[in-house]
């Protein structure tokens, strides 16, 4: 597990309660992880704080899976 994935998994676990081991790259935030649009805002805020990146609103719709988010964060940082 990459450090980014590990950090993101901790955030998703905090927001949605999903077990850490179930939070893998191919999982969809909405379909698999019980993250609705409001929870997604919380995930984005926490990612910005944790990884020191900026994730504009226009970008959030492209972050469908955990892997998408990890790739975006890694490219920014």
């Amino acid at each position: 597990m990459s450090q980014t994935l590990e950090g993101l998994a901790a955030i998703v676990n905090e927001v949605a309660g999903t077990p850490i081991e179930d939070i893998t790259a191919e999982k969809s935030f909405v379909d698999d992880l019980d993250i609705d649009s409001l929870s997604m805002v919380e995930v984005v805020m926490a990612c910005e704080d944790k990884f020191g990146v900026s994730i504009p609103d226009g970008e959030v719709k492209n972050l469908r899976t955990v892997g998408d988010a990890v790739a975006y964060i890694d490219a920014q940082s």
Binding site: L38, V41, E42, M45
Partner: peptide
């Protein structure tokens, strides 16, 4: 404003 919780209205 960007750190105001999206749950604050509910």
């Amino acid at each position: 404003w960007s750190r105001v919780s999206p749950m604050s209205v509910p």
